[in-house]
């Protein structure tokens, strides 16, 4: 259950951004999870609901976008979005590909409320 450690890193980042922007409250946290990032979205959601309670994210909603695997083939130059967990080019069956997306865990956007008249 490394989802708990990942959520605590995420909430720490939210707190830093909140401080830097004099926010009093974070209302929405948007993240992007690659299908090959090694995190289970439902476990992450549960961990977030548990951990958010003591901090600035107390009332925040976590919105997750699942990023499928996107590869680019070095042989036929085709870019493909894959359903399967494989990096083989569906157009020409080449193994000579590069993963463009789908392996990362990223914080994308924060919605926050700021103190009035700053």
């Amino acid at each position: 259950m490394h989802e708990y450690s990942i959520v605590s890193a995420l909430i720490e980042q939210c707190e830093q951004h909140a401080r830097a922007n004099q926010a009093t409250k974070i209302t929405r946290v948007a993240i992007k999870l690659g299908v090959m990032s090694g995190v289970e979205p439902t476990l992450l959601q549960t961990a977030f609901e548990t951990f958010k309670l003591d901090g600035i994210c107390r009332e925040a909603e976590l919105s997750m976008t699942l990023q499928p695997l996107v590869i680019k083939c070095a042989d036929c130059q085709q870019e493909s979005v894959l359903d399967e967990r494989s990096i083989v080019c569906p157009a020409c069956n080449s193994y000579h590909t590069r993963v463009l997306e789908g392996e990362d865990m990223l914080l994308m956007q924060l919605e926050m409320e700021q103190a009035e008249d700053i």
Partner: peptide
Amino acid sequence: TLSVIHKI
């Protein structure tokens, strides 16, 4: 709304 792209 703050847009960040930040590795978690």
